[in-house]
Amino acid sequence: MVSSINPSVKMIAIVIPGLILSLAFDVMTPLIFFLYLLMVTVFFSGVNLKKWLMFFIPLSVFALMLAWTSMIHTDEKYAGGDILVDFWWIEITTGSLQVGISLALRSMCFIALTLLFALTTDPTKLMLSMMQQLKLPPKLTYGILAGYRFLPLFKHELDLLRQAHQIRGVSRTKGIKGRIQRFKRYLIPLLANAIRKSERVANAMESKGFTGSRERTHYHDIQVQKRDWMFLASMVSALVLAFYLSYTFGYLNIFGKTF
């Protein structure tokens, strides 16, 4: 399963295809790679399909809107070919249509890559892996991890503040001015609690000998195994295959130049 892959290797396997795929302006290359990502997500990620669709569909709608905007405002360098639609100020050619569809497919690939990483990666293991494999400073990684752990606590404290104000009869004025007043009432108690919690965490870490040194042992030893390299190789190979098939069938287009 993808969830068992080393987080740092997984992040590299997500970033590299995303950067290289941004060079392709044809339709076939992102389409082939998107189909591969769907296969990996459905059969090898272990992610609930309904949960995946809850994130993917809204983001895809935004990607389609972006593609439509790009289609009707395509640069003259890419907007060649026959005119398909000529209505009022809207003019769509075969070139601009290809650019729009290509942008939509690339955006969907980026969304699928992001969801594949986000929904299969444990934040704690990610921080530990970045510290052990990518050699990030422990102060930075533990600080990010502590901040991430505080987010649910802040939401709980905000709910308690709202309930306390309701019990005491604090009126909820409507409009922008009322929202600003409520924000001020919530801000100071939340900041005070955040400062107290951060001081407690800092004191606890110092009492347990945390100095921020890179030369330290780890209770959870995150290692890179053979399956991690196989996952990285499969992602890169799938992208190379997509470029090769697109080139073989004469669709490959990189920055407006067809190969």
Rank of each mutant, 00 (worst) to 15 (best):
V2F: 08
I5M: 05
I5T: 13
N6R: 00
V9F: 11
K10C: 09
M11V: 09
I14H: 02
V15G: 08
G18N: 04
G18D: 01
L21R: 00
S22H: 09
M28S: 08
I32M: 04
M39K: 01
M39I: 07
T41M: 02
G46N: 04
K50D: 04
K51N: 04
K51I: 00
S60V: 06
V61E: 10
M65T: 14
M65V: 15
L66P: 00
W68Q: 08
K77C: 04
A79S: 14
I83S: 12
L84M: 10
F87M: 13
F87P: 09
I90E: 09
T93G: 07
S96D: 03
S96W: 06
L97C: 12
L97E: 10
L103C: 09
L103V: 14
M108K: 08
F110E: 06
A112E: 09
A112D: 03
L115E: 14
L115A: 11
F117C: 03
T124L: 13
K125D: 14
L126H: 09
M127D: 06
S129Q: 06
M131H: 06
Q132Y: 09
Q133G: 07
L136A: 02
L140H: 01
T141R: 07
Y142M: 12
I144C: 06
L145Q: 02
A146W: 01
L151H: 06
P152I: 06
H156Y: 03
H156V: 03
L158Y: 00
L160C: 13
Q163Y: 12
I167F: 11
R168L: 10
G169R: 06
G169M: 08
S171R: 12
S171K: 14
T173Q: 15
K174L: 14
K174Y: 14
G178K: 03
G178F: 12
I180H: 11
K184P: 09
Y186C: 15
Y186A: 15
L191E: 13
A194M: 13
K197E: 14
K197C: 15
S198H: 12
E199L: 15
M205I: 01
S207F: 05
K208D: 14
K208W: 03
E215Q: 00
E215V: 05
T217C: 00
H218L: 00
Y219A: 01
H220Q: 02
Q223N: 05
V224I: 10
K226M: 01
R227V: 10
R227L: 01
W229P: 03
W229Q: 04
S234P: 03
M235W: 04
S237G: 07
A238D: 01
A238G: 08
Y244M: 12
S246A: 12
S246C: 05
Y247S: 05
G250N: 01
G250R: 03
I254G: 00
F255I: 06
F255Q: 09
